[in-house]
Design a protein around this nucleic acid. Structure first.
Lengths: 189, 189
DNA sequence: CACTTTACATTGCGATTGTATTATCCTCGG
DNA sequence: CCGAGGATAATACAATCGCAATGTAAAGTG
């Protein structure tokens, strides 16, 4: 057996470079050469780990979604359903530099997926998982007079929209949190 | 004087072709040649009416936002503030083919603007106008216990998010309307 | 040591990009 | 009726794209 290398780690290194590029200059600027340069490697190495550009894009998107999900899982250590829901949703909002970058990437991929169906499915199932979790929590909270599924979809859409408005500087972080809390208050109180 | 042509009309013809392309194949596929081919003209003519690609993009975005605003203005013929608000918001949702196309284009430009600040300002002021109008209506409706500004921002974010989820097939049109109505009920009732 | 397999770099090809330049119309004022 | 000048087209150009082919270094197995 020849020299062994952690494939997963290498691919994540390249995907990280892709993320930085996508957040800073948009998905249009993501090319094999630019990713290679950003990662400080040769374009040949990028090709060695991703057979095609699409494969690289799909991997990067999957990585971002996985990270968001992992961080969300870690954040739901609260007791009450309401705090759980708020914690999860806040974890998605671009409230620090890390999540700001992630939101940039997700937005870029949203537009990308609107046109590339093969990419869209990954985005969809990730959102579906969150919606189920939210709906379960809303059911458990026993808020009366609201449809849990519907409210979960609304909350997810609200957080999506808030994220976009924060990214495009239409809203401050504080205003986004305030809007979220208003909505939560309407649901739970 | 040589032959005269309606510049504005020509630019809108080209911008229409750009919109169709952006909606069908994404902003990455928008090039001078593709726009020219879609409009059935030469690339030279595109260059004649737009000195640079950026100028073309900016004009197309402006046109889309203007159309949305005009259509929204026409739709607010309702009596009560609540119906006004609902009418305006529904006008933004991708509920028919025209608005689906527009939403696609706006989403593409959102990602584009996240990276090109010169484009972002147009998007911002358009959203600001809507937010003011919504806040005014909410104030007039005299709903108690809610901050009009905050609720307007929340509604706008919700509709943004719902639009994205409808576009990416995470939600049906009916579910989006239902989520919107749920939110409106929470605010007004 | 011979050999195979993996890791990575370099180079080149054909296509496409935005832009610049040049050429050909067509129309209207003189 | 004619030529000036705007409308439109055709083409050239350098840069960049994704991708494939090819080369080299290194590491493990026989």
């Amino acid at each position: 057996m020849p020299r062994k290398v952690d494939h997963r780690a290498r691919r994540e290194l390249l995907a990280d470079a892709l993320m930085r590029l996508a957040a800073a200059r948009g998905l249009e600027e993501v090319s094999l050469r630019h990713v290679a340069a950003e990662a400080g490697v040769s374009t040949g190495m990028v090709q060695h780990y991703f057979r095609t550009k699409d494969e690289m894009m799909a991997f990067a998107l999957g990585m971002v979604m996985d990270r968001i999900r992992e961080r969300s899982d870690g954040a739901v250590a609260s007791a009450t359903p309401r705090e759980l829901v708020r914690g999860l949703l806040c974890e998605v909002l671009p409230l620090d530099e890390t999540r700001r970058l992630e939101n940039h990437v997700v937005l870029a991929f949203l537009a990308y997926a609107a046109v590339k169906p093969s990419i869209a499915s990954g985005l969809r199932e990730s959102a579906a998982g969150m919606r189920e979790f939210l709906a379960d929590q809303l059911r458990a909270s026993g808020a009366d007079g609201i449809d849990p599924e519907r409210a979960a979809a609304g909350l997810l859409a609200l957080v999506d929209g808030l994220g976009i408005q924060v990214l495009s500087r239409q809203l401050t972080e504080e205003a986004a949190i305030a809007a979220l809390d208003s909505h939560l208050a309407l649901i739970f109180d």
